[in-house]
């Protein structure tokens, strides 16, 4: 599996881009943060990558970076291109691609809620999926889920009285 020539042609027009095949019908493209909107625009306009299927986010806490991955699909080429971008974790601000792909608004709002990344120019950065949530963005690596669970919820009594009774008689789940 190699990168299709038409795609290569387009990618070569942009500076600082690394592309490699990542499986059948799938190409991984690493791009600098300032180059991504141009890349998406070109892919959409020239090769028919009109379907933004998801934006995913990875928190690389050791590197101090967020990795944003834009998955675009072309019905024409039957190919998925994943555009990887790394942005600084602090202050965690990036530009919205809502003007290129309209559904991006929802993904960006979701990422903002879960990771705290702010997208400039996004139509809305309001609360989205999480309800009754006042704490920090819960998918960040520095959010301690276990601590939150222990503070918020009560654990089941794993050794209730009736089980102790059974254990006294020589039964129980550990014997």
């Amino acid at each position: 599996m190699s990168i299709p020539a038409r795609l290569n042609e387009v990618l070569n027009e942009l500076p600082a881009i690394q592309a490699r095949p990542a499986g059948a019908r799938r190409v991984r493209v690493d791009v600098a943060p300032q180059g991504l909107p141009a890349l998406l625009e070109l892919l959409k306009g020239r090769l028919g990558f009109i379907h933004l299927s998801a934006i995913s986010c990875v928190d690389w806490i050791e590197d101090g970076q967020f990795e944003l991955v834009y998955h675009v699909w072309s019905h024409e080429m039957k190919l998925l291109v994943s555009c990887h971008v790394r942005i600084a974790r602090e202050p965690g601000v990036y530009v919205s691609v809502h003007d290129i792909h309209e559904p991006a608004g929802f993904f960006e709002r979701d990422i903002h809620e879960m990771f705290g990344v702010h997208f400039d120019g996004a139509p809305s950065m309001e609360k989205f999926i999480l309800t009754s949530w006042e704490g920090p963005p819960p998918m960040r690596k520095d959010f301690n889920t276990r601590k939150h669970v222990e503070e918020t919820f009560e654990w089941v009594d794993y050794r209730p009285d009736w089980l102790k009774d059974i254990e006294r008689k020589g039964g129980g789940i550990e014997s």
Binding site: L130, W133, G135, P138, F143, T145, R146, H148, V149, F153, E154, W155, V156
Partner: peptide
């Protein structure tokens, strides 16, 4: 529904 099951370590699922 008893103790959160395999999703216990989560910010969004209730435990009991």
């Amino acid at each position: 529904t008893i103790n959160g099951g395999m999703y216990w370590n989560s910010y969004a699922t209730m435990k009991r």
